[in-house]
Amino acid sequence: PQECLLLEPGLNEIMANSLDYNERLWAWESWRSEVGKQLRPLYEEYVVLKNEMARANHYEDYGDYWRGDYEVNGVDGYDYSRGQLIEDVEHTFEEIKPLYEHLHAYVRAKLMNAYPSYISPIGCLPAHLLGDMWGRFWTNLYSLTVPFGQKPNIDVTDAMVDQAWDAQRIFKEAEKFFVSVGLPNMTQGFWENSMLTDPGNVQKAVCHPTAWDLGKGDFRILMCTKVTMDDFLTAHHEMGHIQYDMAYAAQPFLLRNGANEGFHEAVGEIMSLSAATPKHLKSIGLLSPDFQEDNETEINFLLKQALTIVGTLPFTYMLEKWRWMVFKGEIPKDQWMKKWWEMKREIVGVVEPVPHDETYCDPASLFHVSNDYSFIRYYTRTLYQFQFQEALCQAAKHEGPLHKCDISNSTEAGQKLFNMLRLGKSEPWTLALENVVGAKNMNVRPLLNYFEPLFTWLKDQNKNSFVGWSTDWSPYADQSIKVRISLKSALGDKAYEWNDNEMYLFRSSVAY
């Protein structure tokens, strides 16, 4: 590609939709070469300064400071330590791993069909083939991996386009969902002041979706909304933040926050679980009234959910574990990228498509890292959202599997949720969690119950496949010279610098 592309739109479109291996590689590498390399010296300084700040406030390091958001002291029976968070994340991840490994094996087999000769049947997945710029969410792999393609499509993007949905309609439908469970409408100022579409040439905007509580009843969302099912669900997520903000607005200023950061992320995700169900999509006209649910549509639905929800958990866990180790000084600065990709291979089963030396800073190419967000919130929120969903479905008197529950129109479920939201940070999160779900610790069981039918199906699908991955295989081993030459021509001086062995191999191949 010759034109100058922004991340959004532009590069993200390539990473969402392109099936051209080399075009995807160009976009993936260009973003890291342009952005990651510029941020490397800044990120090194950032780590030093943030650690100084944390230690001045009596924390061991900046990662310890972040984990302090979960700490509860002096509340008998509800205490929770920063170290306990690490333990809980690690042991819940071990419980999730078998499901993830089977999802990984299934996706690898489907990617082998889409990119023959580029995928190893026992290796890691190349990082640039996973549906977005970071491989964070695998949602866009659904069209390549759908188990029963002859069934009606449960990705309702086409239906939204056919019905001329726009950003306003998407957010109005999200608002209807919250109102149906007894939560309030958005304010008039929300509709007047939010930026729900890309302003285009009028001004440059950071398009990463964010929710804003500017105080004095001024709530806004910034999002360059596209007419897709993914953005339909994202709208519910962002509006969930606003509902939380509005619910605790009466609290004293210092207590106007989520019980912990994971709670804030979980609220909209609960609504997304219901909004994505075929039952709900039928009720708002995005699935045909004669759409029939059966075992095959159930597996299609659960796989689509797993690509988004299960596929991202190792990504989140590994990223934050790397940062915690960096802040603690356990990874020397001259080994940041080496350790990043070692951990990516070992924990996530994902491999870099071309080698990256220590001039890169791949983590900082992600919005949340370069903008100083702690990231473990996206792991804890996933466990909380299924715990909350299970409890709210019980309040809504849902009968049947958890993945079929739609809590819309249940004011009982809405009241149970609101009673927790309005507390803000005035009560320990362990107590707030217990008030809703009857337990005071994160628990992976509801998530595993939700995906149980899919897990059973995946194990059957993978019975003749290798489950797990070898960390030795690299996608650039066989194609390295071709890849390096093409990237050198595209990126010039910003391309990865060849070492002596690679230059010798190149000259030998040319001479041959």
Rank of each mutant, 00 (worst) to 15 (best):
Y373S: 08
T234E: 07
N140M: 11
E192T: 06
H237T: 11
R136G: 08
P209T: 04
T139S: 08
R136L: 09
D213N: 10
A250C: 14
T308F: 11
R381D: 02
P209V: 05
P252C: 07
K304W: 09
P252F: 06
K304M: 12
A249I: 15
E261W: 08
A249V: 05
F301S: 10
K216G: 00
E261M: 09
A250Q: 12
Q188W: 03
F375Q: 07
R136D: 02
E269K: 11
G189P: 01
A249T: 07
D218Q: 00
N193T: 07
D372I: 03
D372S: 07
E269G: 13
T210C: 06
M246S: 06
D213G: 06
D230M: 07
P209A: 11
F253W: 02
K304P: 02
E192D: 13
T187C: 06
H241T: 14
H208D: 09
H208I: 11
E261L: 08
V206E: 04
F301P: 00
H237N: 14
P252S: 10
K304A: 12
R377G: 08
V206I: 10
R381F: 05
M246Y: 03
D230N: 13
N257Y: 14
F219H: 05
F367K: 12
Q188N: 06
H241P: 01
N140S: 10
D372R: 04
E269Q: 14
G189T: 02
F219S: 03
E192S: 06
H368V: 09
L214E: 00
H237Q: 13
F367Q: 12
N153S: 11
H264V: 07
N140H: 13
G215S: 14
I309L: 09
V206G: 03
Q188K: 10
F367V: 07
G189V: 02
F301T: 07
K216P: 01
E269C: 08
E269I: 08
M229L: 09
V206W: 06
Y378G: 06
R381S: 10
F301E: 11
I309R: 06
D213M: 02
R377D: 11
P209H: 08
T234Q: 09
R381T: 07
D245V: 14
R381M: 12
W212M: 03
R256G: 08
T187F: 04
Y378H: 10
T139F: 08
E265Q: 10
N153C: 12
L233C: 08
I309D: 07
D218P: 00
A249S: 06
V206D: 08
E265P: 09
T187D: 08
F219E: 00
Q251R: 05
R381P: 03
Y373A: 12
H208M: 11
Y378I: 11
E192G: 06
T210L: 06
Y378D: 12
T234L: 08
F367A: 09
F253V: 03
M229G: 09
N193V: 05
D230I: 09
H241E: 14
N153F: 07
P209C: 05
F375V: 08
F137C: 10
E269S: 14
D245R: 04
D372Y: 04
R220V: 00
N257S: 12
Y378S: 10
H237I: 11
S374P: 09
D218K: 00
W212K: 04
R377T: 10
D245M: 09
Y378C: 06
P209N: 06
T139C: 08
T139W: 08
S374F: 10
N257C: 12
V206Y: 07
N193R: 02
F137A: 09
